[in-house]
Structure formats: structure tokens, C-alpha cells
Design a protein around this nucleic acid. Structure first.
Lengths: 250, 250
DNA sequence: GCGCCGGATTGATCCGCGTCAGGATCGGGG
DNA sequence: CCCCGATCCTGACGCGGATCAATCCGGCGC
């Protein structure tokens, strides 16, 4: 980096990249952000970062690595509600509210900045623009959950998979971790199965089908969009819910 | 009512009943609430109250009648995301954010109080306690959407149905429209199908099965819990997500 | 180099649920 | 009173996806 201003270096973070896509952040916004961003923690794969029912949680901003939030059912199966990628907020609700109603677990080794509740609220007061951006991101997450619900309720396995990969691509592009061609993806077929409400075996078959149809290829930890337009067409992917307008509040 | 204070009469409303279950509302809270509550509107069955992509919406508080929010898929099918019953907020997100990403449609004739964005924000500033209560309700709604997602992803048709009816019962009890025995329910089997990701035919079969197993009976617009405990057991219903702690913010 | 283990891959079989098709019932309007 | 539309109900059949069971592959510890 040529910048000598340490505050500006925060612009390299996925979090700042993502929020910048929505609001123009001032130098003082960035200063507050880099302050909040300072308390780094590492998490190993498979150890819950946030646990269901636990109180007085911190929230985190994912700096690197992937995580997933999920609920366990009696019977051992689980449903993954959402994946988190760098730049995503994580556990925001468990800070605003007292308890978390689901678990969050790292999929790869994770680096995340811990955000204490009081720091977050202080930052919100100091820089309303930052608060606006964070709320915008939160509302986008909620829209994704709704779309995921539609996936499970009314789309076939292949449509689900195609839709999921397109959405993931769009999210990663926002933080510079993907382009139209594809992206690196650490998700196993078991994880895909738990997210899409399928069995791992069927996930495999669906991926083969999409590959043989020349739409997407997901192999060796890499997703390649072989025919982006056809894929969008196939699953009736509508970007609208991802880049909706921002919040008016605050 | 023996009360002579007109403000206190708002306590009869489902909205106040619901929020009272969470916070103790002061007389001035009630005054603000009854003020916000004043602008009544009626809606006929089948005419969208909130339309996807529409901007500058109002929000509503349901006073009487039932509604549902849903998304349409190309192909004509739809997925119902949630039902709204009296006391529920409706379109809160489309006020906080600029556009709505789904439709809301009355299922029965509906009476609702229109809440303008500026009135809502003003009320929030005037009575933080009211804001707290509203945010609590919103977070509860979100938890229900997540639980609904788990339904579609990982529960069988009968478990889904059982879970859905139990949840609905719990919600209605909060506003005095149900007891442990059951409740009046205007939902057709087509609506249930669109919500649970099933075909109407299969909804019918599942209802018969639950009835013959002596768990619930849903006939002639009335849901009767024949064996509440067994039903809870059957679907592993966990009330925790419905009566979680309230928000800390504001 | 060998054994082990988690993930990917594939085939065979089974069953939950969708689809199609037809009745029955009921309330409302002409 | 009769017709019509909406809703409920039921049977026959087929398909999508689960389940069970192998096999294969690459990475890693020793």
C-alpha cells in the first residue's frame, strides 16, 4: 500500500469494501471503524463461535475465513441458515437482543474482530452513517434468509443449488473474492446438503448434472460459472433482493 | 369496560396485549400508542396491502383479520413467508428500508392502523420503552422465519404441519385469540400448502393423519388440539424461540 | 511407503410427496 | 330452486430425492 495514513488501510478490509458499496464513508467514519475493528480473535474449525441460548454475547466482523450459522434438530440433523464470508457481520442479533437462537461455527480457520455491545452502540452514535450502513447490511442478510426459505419451499434441487451458487458469487464479488468467472469455495458437499435441505448424495448428483449441462462446475474447492447467463436463466435469479435500497432510519 | 379513561381502552387491542406481555407500558406509552393507532383503514380480501418493489410504504398494525406475506416465483407458484394475525406489525421493514421485497395480502377482511414513517420515528423518540417493545416483536418475527426455514429444510410434512399449528396457537394465545384447547382459523388448505411447501392434496392427507392419530383436528375453520402434549412431543416443539429475552438497544 | 480418514462418486432400491382426475359438500347469487 | 365456484376429500400413478452400500481418491501421520 502506498497510503501512509493507517486509517486508510482499513479500506482493504472486506468489511469496509462491502459497506463502501452502499455508502461513501468519510475519513472519520473509517477512523471509528478501524477502532472498532481492532480487537482481533482467531477461531479453529468446528468450535462454536456463538452458541444457542448463550447470553451476553459479543458480535464479530469476519475478517478472513468462512463460517455458518445453523440450528440443530433433535435427531441429529441440522439446518444451516446462512453462511458468513469475509466482511459479514455475525451475531448482530445476539448483541441487539439478549440471547442467540442459533449456533455459529467456523468452516475454515477464522479471523474475526470482536465487537463489544457498548463499542457498537458508541460507534453508532458517533457516526450515524456507519450505523446506516450496518443496518443496510443486516436487512440484506434478512432478505437472503427469506430467499433461502423460498429455495427450500418451492425450488427443485438443481434450481436451489444454482440459485445458491449465484447468490454466493454475488456476495463474494462485493468483497473482491469472486468475479464473473467463479470463486474459491471451501464448502464440502455435506455442508451444501445441510444448507439446501438435501442429502449429501443428492448434492453430488445435482452438481454433476449442472456440470454436464455446461452451467457451473464445482470441483476441487472452486466454483466456475461455465455459462453465467444460462445459469441465471435456469434458476430465475433476480438480483434485486441483493442490492435493494438502504435504510432511512438513523 | 369500566374504565372512563379513553387511553386505557387501547389495552383491549391485540397490539397492546402482545407488547404488554413483554414490557409494562406506562400511561404515557399507551397515550402515544393510541395516537399512532388512530388512522384506521380497511382492506378487502385478495387486494395487496403492500406490493413488492413499491417504495414509500406505510406500515400497519393489524387490528382484526388475517394476512399473509409471500413471494411469487416465475411459474406461478408462490411461497408464503409468514402469516400475520391481529396485533402483528406488518411492513415494518418497508418503512425502515425503502423498498419491500415481498407482497402482503389480506386473507380475511382486514382492519389495520396505518403508521406513517415519521409518526413511528417520533413515537420511538418520545417513548423508548415502546420502541424496545416493537423491536422485540420484530426480532421475534425474524426468529419465526428462521424456524420456518428449518421446517422446510429438515422436517417431514406431518412434523411441519404440527409445528406450524403449535406456533400459530402460541402466537394467538398471546393476543387472547386461542387457548390450550384450540383456536378459530380461517386458513384454507391451499394457503397451508403455499406456506409449508406442500401440495394442497398432501396437506389434506397430512391433516387426516394427524386427526386419526388423535393429535390435532383442523376442520370447519377450527383447530382443536386433541392431545397437546403428544403433539409437542411429536414435532419436538421448543417454545424458546417464541419467548426469548427482549432487546437491549434504545 | 503404508494405513487411515474425510470427502467425492456412483449404483440399487425405497418411499414421501406431487400430479392428475374425479367426487362430495356448501354457500351465495340469479 | 338451481347453478356455480370454492373448498374439501380421496384414489391411482409416477418421480424426485432419501437411504444403504460400495468404491475411489488425496492428504497426512508415522
Amino acid at each position: 500500500m502506498i497510503d501512509r495514513d493507517p486509517v486508510l488501510s482499513i479500506l482493504d478490509s472486506p468489511f469496509a469494501r462491502k459497506l463502501s458499496a452502499f455508502v461513501r464513508l468519510s475519513h472519520s467514519d473509517l477512523a471509528v471503524m478501524s477502532d472498532v475493528y481492532r480487537r482481533r480473535r482467531s477461531f479453529a474449525v468446528g468450535v462454536d463461535m456463538i452458541h444457542q441460548g448463550q447470553t451476553d454475547q459479543s458480535a464479530y466482523v469476519l475478517a478472513s475465513g468462512w463460517a455458518c450459522s445453523y440450528k440443530i434438530l433433535p435427531g441429529g440433523t441440522r439446518q444451516i441458515v446462512d453462511f458468513q464470508v469475509p466482511g459479514d457481520f455475525l451475531g448482530l442479533r445476539s448483541v441487539l437482543f439478549r440471547t442467540s437462537d442459533h449456533n455459529v461455527e467456523p468452516i475454515t480457520p477464522v479471523q474475526a474482530s470482536e465487537v463489544k455491545q457498548r463499542d457498537l452502540l458508541a460507534a453508532f452514535t458517533a457516526t450515524p452513517r456507519l450505523a446506516t450502513a450496518v443496518l443496510w447490511a443486516a436487512s440484506r442478510d434478512e432478505a437472503m434468509v427469506v430467499e433461502h426459505l423460498v429455495d427450500l419451499g418451492r425450488r427443485t434441487a438443481s434450481e436451489r443449488m444454482a440459485h445458491f451458487l449465484l447468490e454466493l458469487g454475488a456476495r463474494l464479488r462485493l468483497v473482491g473474492m469472486a468475479d464473473r468467472a467463479g470463486f474459491a469455495c471451501p464448502l464440502s458437499q455435506y455442508l451444501l446438503a445441510d444448507a439446501l435441505g438435501l442429502s449429501a448424495v443428492h448434492v453430488n448428483r445435482v452438481l454433476r448434472e449442472l456440470r454436464e449441462d455446461g452451467l457451473v462446475t464445482f470441483q476441487k474447492g472452486r466454483v466456475v460459472f461455465d455459462d453465467y447467463e444460462a445459469l441465471v436463466e435456469f434458476t430465475a435469479f433476480d438480483r434485486a433482493y441483493l442490492d435493494h435500497e438502504g435504510p432511512l432510519l438513523i
